[in-house]
Design a protein around this nucleic acid. Structure first.
Lengths: 164, 164
DNA sequence: TATGAAAACGATAATGATTATCGTTTAGTA
DNA sequence: TACTAAACGATAATCATTATCGTTTTCATA
Protein backbone atom coordinates (compact mmCIF):
# COMPACT_ATOMS: atom_id res chain seq x y z
CA UNK A 1 0.00 0.00 0.00
CA UNK A 2 1.00 3.58 -0.52
CA UNK A 3 0.99 4.37 3.18
CA UNK A 4 4.01 2.19 3.85
CA UNK A 5 5.91 3.70 0.95
CA UNK A 6 5.21 7.19 2.14
CA UNK A 7 6.33 6.25 5.62
CA UNK A 8 9.54 4.86 4.16
CA UNK A 9 10.03 8.04 2.18
CA UNK A 10 9.65 10.15 5.28
CA UNK A 11 12.06 7.93 7.21
CA UNK A 12 14.56 8.35 4.42
CA UNK A 13 14.13 12.10 4.57
CA UNK A 14 14.83 12.14 8.28
CA UNK A 15 17.85 9.94 7.85
CA UNK A 16 19.29 11.96 4.97
CA UNK A 17 19.29 15.04 7.16
CA UNK A 18 20.90 13.22 10.10
CA UNK A 19 17.81 13.32 12.23
CA UNK A 20 17.16 10.34 14.41
CA UNK A 21 14.23 8.03 13.95
CA UNK A 22 12.44 7.65 17.24
CA UNK A 23 9.26 5.76 18.10
CA UNK A 24 7.64 9.09 18.93
CA UNK A 25 8.37 10.50 15.49
CA UNK A 26 7.20 7.33 13.81
CA UNK A 27 3.95 7.31 15.73
CA UNK A 28 3.35 10.96 14.91
CA UNK A 29 3.81 10.35 11.21
CA UNK A 30 1.50 7.35 11.40
CA UNK A 31 -1.20 9.52 12.90
CA UNK A 32 -0.77 12.08 10.16
CA UNK A 33 -1.00 9.40 7.49
CA UNK A 34 -4.15 7.98 9.04
CA UNK A 35 -5.87 11.36 9.29
CA UNK A 36 -4.95 13.04 6.07
CA UNK A 37 -8.31 14.57 5.41
CA UNK A 38 -8.48 16.43 8.68
CA UNK A 39 -6.59 19.54 9.56
CA UNK A 40 -5.16 18.42 12.86
CA UNK A 41 -3.92 20.82 15.49
CA UNK A 42 -0.93 19.94 17.64
CA UNK A 43 -3.33 19.07 20.44
CA UNK A 44 -5.34 16.79 18.11
CA UNK A 45 -2.18 15.00 17.07
CA UNK A 46 -1.09 14.69 20.68
CA UNK A 47 -4.31 12.99 21.71
CA UNK A 48 -4.22 10.60 18.77
CA UNK A 49 -0.57 9.73 19.23
CA UNK A 50 -1.13 8.94 22.88
CA UNK A 51 -3.13 5.88 21.81
CA UNK A 52 -0.09 4.49 20.09
CA UNK A 53 2.57 5.76 22.45
CA UNK A 54 0.98 6.82 25.75
CA UNK A 55 4.22 8.13 27.19
CA UNK A 56 4.69 10.84 24.59
CA UNK A 57 4.77 14.45 25.73
CA UNK A 58 3.03 17.42 24.15
CA UNK A 59 6.35 19.21 23.68
CA UNK A 60 7.62 16.33 21.59
CA UNK A 61 4.59 16.55 19.35
CA UNK A 62 5.25 20.24 18.82
CA UNK A 63 8.92 19.55 18.15
CA UNK A 64 8.12 16.78 15.70
CA UNK A 65 5.55 18.78 13.80
CA UNK A 66 7.96 21.69 13.57
CA UNK A 67 10.62 19.37 12.24
CA UNK A 68 8.30 17.85 9.66
CA UNK A 69 7.34 21.33 8.59
CA UNK A 70 10.98 22.27 8.05
CA UNK A 71 11.48 19.10 6.03
CA UNK A 72 8.49 20.18 3.92
CA UNK A 73 6.68 16.97 4.78
CA UNK A 74 3.80 18.81 6.43
CA UNK A 75 2.38 22.27 5.93
CA UNK A 76 1.70 24.41 8.96
CA UNK A 77 -1.40 26.38 8.21
CA UNK A 78 -3.57 28.87 9.98
CA UNK A 79 -7.30 29.37 9.58
CA UNK A 80 -7.47 32.19 12.07
CA UNK A 81 -9.04 30.08 14.80
CA UNK A 82 -6.15 30.50 17.19
CA UNK A 83 -4.27 27.27 16.55
CA UNK A 84 -1.84 26.07 13.92
CA UNK A 85 -2.90 23.06 11.93
CA UNK A 86 -0.71 20.56 10.16
CA UNK A 87 -1.38 18.97 6.80
CA UNK A 88 0.67 16.18 5.33
CA UNK A 89 1.80 17.17 1.86
CA UNK A 90 0.51 15.04 -0.92
CA UNK A 91 3.13 13.20 -2.94
CA UNK A 92 3.89 14.68 -6.28
CA UNK A 93 5.42 18.00 -7.10
CA UNK A 94 2.61 20.43 -7.69
CA UNK A 95 1.31 21.55 -4.39
CA UNK A 96 -2.24 22.62 -5.09
CA UNK A 97 -4.17 22.61 -1.92
CA UNK A 98 -6.65 25.39 -1.36
CA UNK A 99 -9.30 26.03 1.23
CA UNK A 100 -12.85 27.25 1.34
CA UNK A 101 -13.75 28.64 4.76
CA UNK A 102 -17.44 29.26 5.39
CA UNK A 103 -17.93 32.49 7.35
CA UNK A 104 -21.29 31.27 8.67
CA UNK A 105 -20.82 27.69 9.84
CA UNK A 106 -17.02 27.67 9.99
CA UNK A 107 -16.64 24.53 7.92
CA UNK A 108 -13.44 24.18 5.94
CA UNK A 109 -13.40 22.23 2.71
CA UNK A 110 -10.64 21.68 0.25
CA UNK A 111 -9.93 22.05 -3.40
CA UNK A 112 -7.32 19.73 -4.81
CA UNK A 113 -6.88 21.38 -8.14
CA UNK A 114 -4.25 23.57 -9.68
CA UNK A 115 -5.98 26.93 -9.88
CA UNK A 116 -2.90 29.10 -10.02
CA UNK A 117 -0.76 27.85 -12.88
CA UNK A 118 -0.96 30.97 -15.03
CA UNK A 119 -1.10 33.25 -12.03
CA UNK A 120 2.19 31.90 -10.71
CA UNK A 121 3.88 32.34 -14.05
CA UNK A 122 2.76 35.94 -14.11
CA UNK A 123 3.89 36.66 -10.56
CA UNK A 124 7.29 35.09 -11.11
CA UNK A 125 7.79 37.08 -14.27
CA UNK A 126 6.51 40.46 -13.14
CA UNK A 127 7.88 40.51 -9.60
CA UNK A 128 11.04 38.43 -10.09
CA UNK A 129 9.86 36.32 -7.18
CA UNK A 130 10.79 32.63 -7.14
CA UNK A 131 7.67 30.89 -5.85
CA UNK A 132 8.17 27.86 -3.64
CA UNK A 133 4.70 27.56 -2.23
CA UNK A 134 1.42 29.38 -1.89
CA UNK A 135 -1.60 29.64 0.33
CA UNK A 136 -4.96 30.37 -1.19
CA UNK A 137 -8.03 30.58 0.98
CA UNK A 138 -11.47 31.78 0.01
CA UNK A 139 -13.80 33.10 2.64
CA UNK A 140 -17.49 33.06 1.85
CA UNK A 141 -20.71 31.17 2.23
CA UNK A 142 -20.85 27.46 1.55
CA UNK A 143 -23.65 25.90 -0.47
CA UNK A 144 -25.33 24.49 2.61
CA UNK A 145 -25.53 27.84 4.38
CA UNK A 146 -26.77 29.49 1.21
CA UNK A 147 -29.66 27.02 1.15
CA UNK A 148 -30.39 27.48 4.85
CA UNK A 149 -30.49 31.22 4.39
CA UNK A 150 -32.78 31.05 1.36
CA UNK A 151 -35.37 29.18 3.39
CA UNK A 152 -35.28 31.90 6.05
CA UNK A 153 -36.76 34.15 3.37
CA UNK A 154 -35.20 37.48 4.14
CA UNK A 155 -32.33 38.80 6.19
CA UNK A 156 -33.26 41.98 8.00
CA UNK A 157 -31.60 44.69 9.96
CA UNK A 158 -27.96 44.48 9.16
CA UNK A 159 -27.02 46.71 6.26
CA UNK A 160 -24.15 45.33 4.25
CA UNK A 161 -21.05 47.35 3.65
CA UNK A 162 -21.29 46.76 -0.07
CA UNK A 163 -24.14 49.23 -0.22
CA UNK A 164 -21.76 52.15 -0.34
CA UNK B 1 -8.14 64.94 0.56
CA UNK B 2 -9.26 61.37 0.46
CA UNK B 3 -8.15 60.67 4.01
CA UNK B 4 -10.84 62.88 5.48
CA UNK B 5 -13.50 61.32 3.31
CA UNK B 6 -12.47 57.85 4.32
CA UNK B 7 -12.51 58.87 7.96
CA UNK B 8 -16.03 60.22 7.47
CA UNK B 9 -17.07 57.02 5.79
CA UNK B 10 -15.77 54.98 8.70
CA UNK B 11 -17.52 57.23 11.19
CA UNK B 12 -20.72 56.76 9.27
CA UNK B 13 -20.28 53.01 9.39
CA UNK B 14 -19.85 53.09 13.14
CA UNK B 15 -22.87 55.29 13.58
CA UNK B 16 -25.09 53.23 11.30
CA UNK B 17 -24.45 50.19 13.49
CA UNK B 18 -25.11 52.11 16.72
CA UNK B 19 -21.51 52.04 17.84
CA UNK B 20 -20.22 55.06 19.65
CA UNK B 21 -17.58 57.34 18.25
CA UNK B 22 -14.91 57.77 20.89
CA UNK B 23 -11.63 59.66 20.73
CA UNK B 24 -9.81 56.35 21.12
CA UNK B 25 -11.53 54.87 18.09
CA UNK B 26 -10.95 57.99 16.09
CA UNK B 27 -7.24 58.04 16.96
CA UNK B 28 -6.92 54.37 16.08
CA UNK B 29 -8.46 54.89 12.67
CA UNK B 30 -6.18 57.90 12.10
CA UNK B 31 -3.16 55.75 12.79
CA UNK B 32 -4.38 53.13 10.36
CA UNK B 33 -4.96 55.76 7.67
CA UNK B 34 -1.49 57.19 8.20
CA UNK B 35 0.24 53.82 8.01
CA UNK B 36 -1.59 52.09 5.24
CA UNK B 37 1.45 50.53 3.65
CA UNK B 38 2.57 48.73 6.77
CA UNK B 39 1.02 45.64 8.23
CA UNK B 40 0.64 46.84 11.78
CA UNK B 41 0.25 44.51 14.70
CA UNK B 42 -1.99 45.46 17.62
CA UNK B 43 1.13 46.35 19.56
CA UNK B 44 2.34 48.58 16.71
CA UNK B 45 -0.98 50.36 16.59
CA UNK B 46 -0.97 50.76 20.36
CA UNK B 47 2.43 52.47 20.37
CA UNK B 48 1.46 54.80 17.52
CA UNK B 49 -1.90 55.69 19.02
CA UNK B 50 -0.30 56.56 22.34
CA UNK B 51 1.30 59.59 20.65
CA UNK B 52 -2.15 60.95 19.86
CA UNK B 53 -3.97 59.73 22.93
CA UNK B 54 -1.46 58.75 25.65
CA UNK B 55 -4.11 57.48 28.02
CA UNK B 56 -5.34 54.71 25.72
CA UNK B 57 -5.07 51.13 26.91
CA UNK B 58 -3.85 48.12 24.96
CA UNK B 59 -7.15 46.33 25.52
CA UNK B 60 -9.00 49.17 23.84
CA UNK B 61 -6.76 48.88 20.80
CA UNK B 62 -7.54 45.18 20.56
CA UNK B 63 -11.26 45.88 20.99
CA UNK B 64 -11.22 48.59 18.36
CA UNK B 65 -9.32 46.53 15.83
CA UNK B 66 -11.68 43.62 16.38
CA UNK B 67 -14.65 45.93 15.86
CA UNK B 68 -13.19 47.39 12.67
CA UNK B 69 -12.58 43.87 11.44
CA UNK B 70 -16.22 42.94 12.04
CA UNK B 71 -17.30 46.06 10.17
CA UNK B 72 -15.06 44.93 7.31
CA UNK B 73 -13.08 48.14 7.52
CA UNK B 74 -9.83 46.34 8.29
CA UNK B 75 -8.61 42.87 7.46
CA UNK B 76 -7.06 40.80 10.20
CA UNK B 77 -4.29 38.82 8.60
CA UNK B 78 -1.70 36.35 9.70
CA UNK B 79 1.75 35.82 8.23
CA UNK B 80 2.65 33.05 10.63
CA UNK B 81 4.96 35.21 12.72
CA UNK B 82 2.88 34.85 15.85
CA UNK B 83 0.92 38.09 15.74
CA UNK B 84 -2.19 39.22 13.92
CA UNK B 85 -1.78 42.19 11.64
CA UNK B 86 -4.42 44.64 10.55
CA UNK B 87 -4.76 46.18 7.11
CA UNK B 88 -7.17 48.93 6.25
CA UNK B 89 -9.27 47.88 3.30
CA UNK B 90 -8.89 49.95 0.20
CA UNK B 91 -11.99 51.74 -0.98
CA UNK B 92 -13.68 50.19 -3.94
CA UNK B 93 -15.30 46.83 -4.20
CA UNK B 94 -12.73 44.45 -5.58
CA UNK B 95 -10.47 43.45 -2.80
CA UNK B 96 -7.26 42.40 -4.46
CA UNK B 97 -4.50 42.42 -1.97
CA UNK B 98 -1.96 39.65 -2.11
CA UNK B 99 1.32 39.03 -0.38
CA UNK B 100 4.76 37.80 -1.29
CA UNK B 101 6.60 36.45 1.74
CA UNK B 102 10.32 35.84 1.30
CA UNK B 103 11.37 32.65 3.06
CA UNK B 104 14.96 33.86 3.35
CA UNK B 105 14.85 37.47 4.57
CA UNK B 106 11.24 37.47 5.80
CA UNK B 107 10.26 40.58 3.90
CA UNK B 108 6.64 40.91 2.92
CA UNK B 109 5.67 42.85 -0.18
CA UNK B 110 2.31 43.36 -1.76
CA UNK B 111 0.59 42.95 -5.05
CA UNK B 112 -2.33 45.25 -5.66
CA UNK B 113 -3.69 43.58 -8.71
CA UNK B 114 -6.64 41.38 -9.42
CA UNK B 115 -5.03 38.02 -10.07
CA UNK B 116 -8.01 35.86 -9.32
CA UNK B 117 -10.88 37.08 -11.46
CA UNK B 118 -11.31 33.95 -13.54
CA UNK B 119 -10.32 31.70 -10.69
CA UNK B 120 -13.09 33.06 -8.49
CA UNK B 121 -15.66 32.62 -11.19
CA UNK B 122 -14.59 29.01 -11.55
CA UNK B 123 -14.67 28.31 -7.81
CA UNK B 124 -18.10 29.89 -7.38
CA UNK B 125 -19.47 27.87 -10.25
CA UNK B 126 -17.92 24.50 -9.50
CA UNK B 127 -18.23 24.48 -5.73
CA UNK B 128 -21.40 26.57 -5.29
CA UNK B 129 -19.43 28.70 -2.89
CA UNK B 130 -20.30 32.39 -2.61
CA UNK B 131 -16.95 34.13 -2.27
CA UNK B 132 -16.80 37.18 -0.04
CA UNK B 133 -13.07 37.50 0.31
CA UNK B 134 -9.84 35.68 -0.28
CA UNK B 135 -6.30 35.43 0.98
CA UNK B 136 -3.52 34.67 -1.42
CA UNK B 137 0.05 34.48 -0.21
CA UNK B 138 3.06 33.27 -2.12
CA UNK B 139 6.06 31.96 -0.25
CA UNK B 140 9.36 32.00 -2.07
CA UNK B 141 12.57 33.90 -2.66
CA UNK B 142 12.49 37.61 -3.37
CA UNK B 143 14.58 39.14 -6.13
CA UNK B 144 17.08 40.60 -3.66
CA UNK B 145 17.77 37.27 -1.99
CA UNK B 146 18.07 35.59 -5.38
CA UNK B 147 20.82 38.06 -6.28
CA UNK B 148 22.57 37.66 -2.94
CA UNK B 149 22.55 33.93 -3.35
CA UNK B 150 23.89 34.04 -6.88
CA UNK B 151 26.93 35.97 -5.68
CA UNK B 152 27.61 33.31 -3.06
CA UNK B 153 28.35 31.03 -6.02
CA UNK B 154 27.08 27.72 -4.80
CA UNK B 155 24.93 26.38 -2.04
CA UNK B 156 26.43 23.27 -0.52
CA UNK B 157 25.48 20.55 1.90
CA UNK B 158 21.73 20.67 2.20
CA UNK B 159 20.07 18.39 -0.27
CA UNK B 160 16.72 19.67 -1.38
CA UNK B 161 13.61 17.62 -0.97
CA UNK B 162 12.73 18.13 -4.61
CA UNK B 163 15.38 15.60 -5.55
CA UNK B 164 13.07 12.72 -4.98
C1' DT C 1 27.93 -6.36 20.74
C1' DA C 2 29.39 -2.63 23.95
C1' DT C 3 30.11 2.31 24.39
C1' DG C 4 29.89 7.22 24.25
C1' DA C 5 28.41 11.64 22.45
C1' DA C 6 24.94 14.05 20.40
C1' DA C 7 20.25 14.15 19.85
C1' DA C 8 15.82 13.54 21.59
C1' DC C 9 12.82 12.90 25.30
C1' DG C 10 9.09 14.11 29.23
C1' DA C 11 7.75 17.21 32.55
C1' DT C 12 6.92 21.52 33.38
C1' DA C 13 8.02 26.45 33.78
C1' DA C 14 8.14 30.55 30.97
C1' DT C 15 6.58 33.41 27.36
C1' DG C 16 3.74 36.28 24.83
C1' DA C 17 -0.38 37.45 22.32
C1' DT C 18 -5.04 37.90 23.11
C1' DT C 19 -9.29 37.97 25.92
C1' DA C 20 -12.11 38.50 30.12
C1' DT C 21 -13.22 40.98 34.23
C1' DC C 22 -14.58 44.82 36.81
C1' DG C 23 -15.22 49.18 38.68
C1' DT C 24 -15.22 53.84 36.54
C1' DT C 25 -16.07 57.10 32.81
C1' DT C 26 -18.33 58.80 28.73
C1' DA C 27 -21.26 59.31 24.40
C1' DG C 28 -25.48 60.15 22.83
C1' DT C 29 -30.35 60.68 23.64
C1' DA C 30 -34.44 62.50 25.96
C1' DT D 1 -28.82 68.46 32.56
C1' DA D 2 -29.71 63.48 33.66
C1' DC D 3 -29.77 58.75 32.41
C1' DT D 4 -28.32 54.31 30.57
C1' DA D 5 -25.91 51.46 27.74
C1' DA D 6 -21.61 51.33 25.81
C1' DA D 7 -16.87 51.97 26.20
C1' DC D 8 -12.91 52.67 28.84
C1' DG D 9 -8.18 51.57 31.54
C1' DA D 10 -5.88 48.52 34.34
C1' DT D 11 -4.79 44.24 34.97
C1' DA D 12 -5.69 39.35 35.80
C1' DA D 13 -6.63 35.18 33.23
C1' DT D 14 -6.23 32.18 29.34
C1' DC D 15 -4.18 29.43 26.13
C1' DA D 16 -1.09 28.02 22.40
C1' DT D 17 3.56 27.60 21.86
C1' DT D 18 8.49 27.58 23.24
C1' DA D 19 12.41 27.12 26.41
C1' DT D 20 14.70 24.72 30.07
C1' DC D 21 16.78 20.93 32.22
C1' DG D 22 17.94 16.61 33.91
C1' DT D 23 17.31 11.90 31.98
C1' DT D 24 16.99 8.57 28.25
C1' DT D 25 17.81 6.86 23.66
C1' DT D 26 19.67 6.48 19.02
C1' DC D 27 23.25 5.22 16.15
C1' DA D 28 27.97 5.38 14.49
C1' DT D 29 32.19 3.47 15.82
C1' DA D 30 35.28 0.53 18.25
Amino acid sequence: MAVKERMDYIKKQLHSQSYKLTPQREATVEVLLENEEDHLSAEDVYLLVKDKAPEIGLATVYRTLELLNELEIVDKINFGDGVSRYDLRKEGANHSHHHLVCIQCGDVSEIEEDLLGEVEVKVEREWQFKIKDHRLTFHGVCSKCQRDKDSTNEEVGRQTVDQL
